[in-house]
Structure formats: structure tokens, C-alpha cells
Design a protein around this nucleic acid. Structure first.
Lengths: 290, 290
DNA sequence: GGAAAGTGTAGTAATTTTATAAAAATTCTG
DNA sequence: CAGAATTTTTATAAAATTACTACACTTTCC
């Protein structure tokens, strides 16, 4: 039921944007007309779109065909699906003039878009392997520096509930020491958006050399990704680039959620009361619901 | 341009399912034919769907109209949109039997759903006020305990870039001391999923009594929400309940993103080079892209 | 200057919609 | 409770809209 709908991954809007440069004059006019207001485009007839783009109807038709649709109606259906996925804001960067409501929406939508993209890119096989390693671990350590430190800390909070010794480190010296002292049965999860922080790559290598399992949450084909036992790769295109990473850490946290859920599920029903106990013990610290 | 697209609400498939009982014989046949395979239905012509449902073409047309579409093609567009967004949520609860790919998808989709819901619920006015306070702050402190500690830490990482003294605390004693020592010009951002942690509410009250501005990122109508200068309220329905908070912290992080972006924008273009400098200085720690 | 690619016109084919009539279901009356 | 009358529902067929194809003209690039 899940993967069944992954093959609809061809996000037409994104594809149009990709190929925008390689289109000839008229087809480009069509592309621009669609991108100007993709949602409205789904309601247009071929004649209306032709007028909006200031081209002839057959040109629109040819345009649709070139995006591997059987014709205009088919193309509209695909367009409609792309829009629904939450990509209306692709490319629409946040601007100085935006109202709060506007840029807030843009941020949320771009986060949604990244999540959806990441979902398609995640390898279930790698996830399954990672979960298996985590279940068998005698000890788990999460390493994250800078912007990934909060992610590591969050992971610690989650995995702490599993009754396994778990720690997170954001200090490379501590990480180095832990890696040096690791061995078989230790799992080290290294979190790095770029996957190119030299320090982190070295630490990962060291841990592996000592026999520890290294799980990387990082960018595809990065130096870090290559030295890991299991690499969970996500590419976050930070399109709301305001000089700080935003969606990447959300994606990383979601992967942590998936790993934690995987461990919970594999632990089986017997383990649920334990989790409930941890949750319930917080009740004493809370104000009653009036 | 922002609210204009609330298209996540009108999920045609859900509406059809709702109204299934109240339809007459033929229209019901159409409904069932569509529900049998909604995805295929988007490719059918009106004639093909009529045949599949064993009714006449005008019946199909009337059916579409009764679901407030202007006609069959329009209806197909809506259906296409529903499939992309709506279907995944159906039967969203994670079960023991799920494959990794399945529950991973479910987690991502439920996160997306929460984000979209939060987007609709967020008050732009409250956000704008919060941003104004943050810009004028002489000092900012983020408080978060337990699962919210990573969120507070993340906020610290983000706001550190703004050249204001900023710290995060996850220890209630430290928080209490900071609150006690706060005053006018100090902004304290209190992050709490439930908004009912007694300790946090007390601390927030104390800070306010001292003249500090308290921004709360918390649940609507919670005790904490009531004592804040500005309350940013999000209700995260943790539908993937596995006894640990998941989407709530993602929502909180997204709010942090929005606040940080708001501050960046208001600071204006002059400030951008400073952000770029901070980003660039990390380059030295990275391995080159081969 | 000629081949190749690109674009538009006009006519054709497909699809959808409307008008209308027949059938079924429901209600009302005797 | 039968049976006529009305309303609702459904289908046939014609009209209108929409999308597609063939071909001719224009531009661009060797």
C-alpha cells in the first residue's frame, strides 16, 4: 500500500523547471505560462492555455507530448498531481516583501516538499539494515556537530527509552575518544548534512576500524557516506536558502523517527508497557487538565 | 497568495466515501467504480467510466456535478489531486506487520499532514509580534526540557548567527535562575509540547513578572500559553502514537525556522553578508568536492 | 542556399455536455 | 390496497466543445 504509489514520483512542475533552459521559444512560453500559475493551468482548456502563453494550440499539445504525456488532458492530470504533493512553491524564493503569512507558508511548503522528496529517495533496505544494527547494539552513540547537534540530542532522547546505553556528542574531541574506545557491538550514528566535515569522516573511519558499526545520516555519495557500514542518504535541496540549513535537519529528525519506530516495532508488543511507563512517569510534573 | 491554496481540505475521495450512503442506485455504481480504483479513474474517459460503472455517460456527468465540479474533466482533476495527497493518510496507523517501506512512508506522510495542519492553525499576527520582539531583544534565551531540549538547542544555533547574546537551557534550575535575573529587553522563548509542565509555567510567570518578554511555543489554550506575552500555538495530533512525541518537535522546529527567517528578513539586505560570512567560515572544515 | 527544426492554420476526430424522452420509483387518491 | 399521477431517475441522440492531425509556412543553423 505504501510503495505502490512511488512511481508517480515524476513531479511535472519540477521537470518543467529542470528542462526550462532546453526548450525552444514557443514551448518555453507554454512552460512559463504554466509555472506562472500551475494551479490555474489545471483548469484551462488547451485553447485557454494557448492564449495565455500566446502560442497556437498544437504547440501546447506538442509541449505536453514532450513531457511524456499522451496529450493535453493527460498532462493536466499529471500537473494536478504534482500540485497536490505540495510543490507549488518550488523555486518561489522568500523575498523581502513577503508578509509573515506568506513566508511562513513558503517555509512550511518547502519543508513538506523536501519531506516528500526524501521519502522517495530513502532506501528501505538501508533503513532495515540500520534498524537491525540498532536492535542488536550493546551501546549506541549519536554524533552530530553544529546544526546536527540538536538532531543527535533528539535521537538520544528517543533511544534512551529503549533501555540501551545511549549518548550523544557534539564535541569532536569527545567523539574521537568514544570512537577510539568503540568495538564490536557498538553502533555509532553519525549525522552530517554535507557529509564532508573532515573531522567527522575521520572519526567514522576510526570507529569502523575498531569494529564498530557506523550508520551515517548524510548526503548521497559524500565522503562520509562511503566510509559508513550503512548510509541513510537524503539530499535536502535547501531552496529557502537564507544562509542557514532548515529542511535538512527536519529530514534527519524524521529518519530518527523512522529508526526509533522500527526498533519499537521489532521489539514487539512486550516492550510497549515499558514505553508507556516512561511516558506516564512524566504525569506528576504536569498541571492537571481543568 | 498564501491562504489561496487550502486544497488539502477538499479530498474528493473522502467526500465520496462520506456521501456513499446517500446516493441513488446509479450514482452509487459510479462512486463504487471510482473507489474501486481511484487512480485508474483519472485516466478513464467519461465513456470508459460509464462502462466500468455500467451506467450511461450523462449519469457520470451528473455525478461529477453533484460533487461540485463543473463537469467530468474538472472532476478528474480534483480526483487526481486527492490521490496524491489524500490516499496515503487512509489507514495511517502503523502496525506491527508493516514493512519498513510502509511504516517509513506512514511516518513521513503523517509528519506532512501535521505540518499542513499547523500551517493553517498558525496565527500570522502572533508570529509577527514574536518576530518584532526578537528583533528588539537585547538578549534571547530558549528554554526547553526533555524532548524540547533539542529544539531549544537548535534555536540557539540559528539565532546565534544574529549577533545577539543567545543561550538555550534544558535544566530547570538554570532556567529558573535566568528567569529570575531577566528584565526588560530580555526575550525568553519557552518551548513545551504540552504546555502543562508545572515547572515551565512557573518559570514563565517569573520571567514576565520581572518585565521580560515571554514567547511560548506550545499547545493551544494550555496553562503556559496563558502566561505568555505571545503564544505561538500548535496542536500536534500525534497520530503515529508509539509513546513518543514525533511530529510536535518538527512543528516546533519549523516555527523556529519561521522566526529566524522573519528576523533575517527584517534585518534587511545589509545583514546578509554577515550570514554568508558565518556560513563560509565552515568551508575550511570540509573536504573538497571531488 | 538548403536542410532541419519549429510554428501556425485549418480541417478532422474525439470527447463531453445538453436536451429530451422513456422508465422507474414514489406518492397520492379513490 | 389498487392504480393513476407526479416526481425522480436514467438513457438515447444530437449539439457543442475540446483536442488532435495533416500540411504548409517560417525561422534557424549549417
Amino acid at each position: 500500500m505504501a510503495a505502490q504509489q512511488a512511481h508517480y514520483d515524476d513531479n511535472v512542475i519540477a521537470v518543467i523547471q529542470d528542462r526550462l533552459e532546453n526548450l525552444n521559444k514557443s514551448e518555453r512560453k507554454v512552460a512559463e505560462a504554466i509555472l506562472r500559475n500551475p494551479k490555474a493551468a489545471t483548469r484551462y482548456s488547451i485553447a485557454a492555455l494557448a492564449r495565455a502563453a500566446d502560442v497556437s494550440e498544437p504547440t501546447v499539445n506538442r509541449f505536453c507530448r514532450s513531457f511524456s504525456a499522451t496529450g493535453f488532458p493527460d498532462f493536466k492530470i499529471r500537473l494536478a498531481q504534482s500540485i497536490a504533493t505540495g510543490t507549488p512553491y518550488v523555486g518561489k524564493n522568500i523575498s523581502q516583501e513577503d508578509s509573515v503569512a506568506e513566508f511562513a507558508d513558503k517555509i512550511v511548503f518547502s519543508t513538506i516538499a523536501s519531506l516528500d522528496k526524501a521519502r522517495q529517495g530513502l532506501s528501505p533496505k538501508a533503513l532495515a539494515e540500520a534498524i537491525d544494527h540498532l536492535i542488536q547494539a550493546r551501546q549506541i552513540n549519536f554524533f552530530g556537530m553544529g546544526g546536527s547537534a540538536p538532531v543527535a540530542l533528539d535521537a538520544q532522547h528517543k533511544f534512551f527509552r529503549f533501555n540501551i546505553p545511549v549518548m550523544s556528542y557534539d564535541d569532536s574531541l569527545m567523539q574521537r575518544m568514544v570512537a577510539a574506545g568503540s568495538g564490536t557491538g557498538h553502533v555509532i550514528v553519525v549525522i552530517s548534512y554535507t557529509g564532508r566535515t573532515r573531522e567527522m569522516v575521520e572519526i567514522a573511519e576510526m570507529a569502523r576500524a575498531n569494529g564498530a558499526t557506523v550508520i551515517g545520516i548524510t548526503a548521497p555519495d559524500s565522503p562520509l557516506s562511503k566510509v559508513c557500514s550503512v548510509a541513510l542518504e537524503v539530499s535536502a535541496t535547501e531552496d529557502t536558502e537564507v544562509y542557514m540549513p532548515m529542511s535538512s535537519r527536519i529530514l534527519h529528525l524524521t529518519i530518527i523517527d523512522i529508526l526509533a519506530t522500527g526498533v519499537t516495532l521489532k521489539r514487539g508488543v512486550d516492550f510497549q508497557p515499558h514505553l508507556k511507563k516512561i511516558k506516564d512517569c512524566l504525569k506528576a510534573t504536569r498541571l492537571p487538565v481543568e
